[in-house]
Design a protein around this nucleic acid. Structure first.
Lengths: 214, 214
DNA sequence: TAGATTGTTAATCGATTAACAATC
DNA sequence: TAGATTGTTAATCGATTAACAATC
């Protein structure tokens, strides 16, 4: 009952999942926390600690069965569950995401794309017709949409976000640099791409300074 | 010297920068750590602690001058410094990033786009002609490129990354889900978009379970 | 001056690592 | 069985929060 797993652990799960998938592909059957730790560049202790938040998936003296562990982490992440997803904002980023096949694999079904620009309406992206945002209302009510991916301009983000949560959206994946403050209780993941780029700039600059001061 | 500021602090800097920019726009002149903490949803203590890693930008009894603080954080992040940047992989994601005007503002100048597909060569994205990856070699040597944004398919990522670091690239912004293990000493920032989506799925699933168990 | 708010030290909290008994 | 490796508890490390003297 409510063990309360920390975000630090949860954020590492997709990475474990990826590494296990790679191992599966090259037909590795079993792996010890020690070997996995060397591949991933984290401590074996952390791996065991992380996994034991969710249950004892390993076996003493043997390690972990790769396929079992992969499936278990998949279950934890909810890969079995399907999430119906829409994209709002059919600009370049919306386009790129709509064509991202990985999402389908991870349990996210893209069922609609919306834009405010009439020139875009009716065009298809990855086989899905772009609808006008005026139709959002009807669409969400009819189709029971779980997640909205927001790739609209920053100035519209709060408005669009408020609207979709009122219509019953449960999760938002926000690509605008603007932080979302929402009245409703909804799960939000922010991407904030340019923040990552800023950190890259910082690290680069700092490295140069260190090098020149030696 | 080398105070060694932790990554946790550095990752918060772009967020401070954004909030200060918003305050500037609405012409707020001064702000206390307390008021900023309320807006950002973090503690005032953390704000003061974070900022003091880089110097005393505030004034007792007054708070912080918004413009000064904004500029100081900009300097720390290296906004003044220009980074010449190329995109490798002119697919949907490469396209989207090439059209992202924010990067220019943050000190990143896009000076080249490359693709392996001959059909794309010669087309322009955001005013920049797409070149074939065969020309990477010459281009990087001639133009002194700082950063490569990699939006190539996962299967090519290691190869392309190794190539650009050999040619002298100092920083990589990696959009492939594959982790990079590079022989050279180079700054890498990974985006791993689908990891973020996976976390969103987890949180959504968990919330449902909590709700239904009440 | 008195009030406000910083810069900074100390206390707390949480996350990572180490260690080892349990056990396959 | 003996060796290997987990699950788990305890120790360490680092990051966040609280507190308050310094000072604008």
């Amino acid at each position: 009952m409510g063990k309360k797993v920390s975000m630090a652990v949860i954020k590492r799960l997709p990475r474990y999942y990826r590494y296990l998938n790679d191992l599966l592909k090259v037909e590795v059957k079993r792996i010890s926390s020690k070997e996995l730790s060397e591949r991933m560049g984290i401590t074996a202790s952390q791996i065991r600690q992380d996994l034991n938040c969710f249950g004892g998936f390993g076996q003493q003296g043997y390690g972990y069965n790769v396929e079992t562990l992969y499936n278990e982490i998949g279950k934890i992440l909810g890969v079995e569950r399907r999430f119906s997803t829409i994209i709002i904002g059919a600009g370049n980023m919306g386009n790129a995401l709509a064509n991202y096949t990985n999402f389908q694999k991870r349990g996210f079904d893209l069922i609609g794309i919306f834009d405010i620009n009439y020139n875009r309406i009716g065009q298809k992206v990855n086989g899905i017709e772009i609808l006008h945002t005026d139709e959002l209302d009807d669409f969400i009510k009819k189709k029971n949409v779980d997640i909205a991916i927001l790739t609209v301009p920053s100035r519209n983000i709060s408005e669009v976000a408020e609207k979709v949560v009122e219509l019953g959206i449960k999760g938002i994946w926000n690509f605008s640099p603007q932080d979302l403050k929402l009245s409703h209780d909804v799960v939000v993941e922010n991407v904030h791409l340019s923040d990552g780029l800023a950190v890259l700039g910082y690290r680069l600059k700092e490295k140069e300074e260190n090098n020149s001061s030696n």
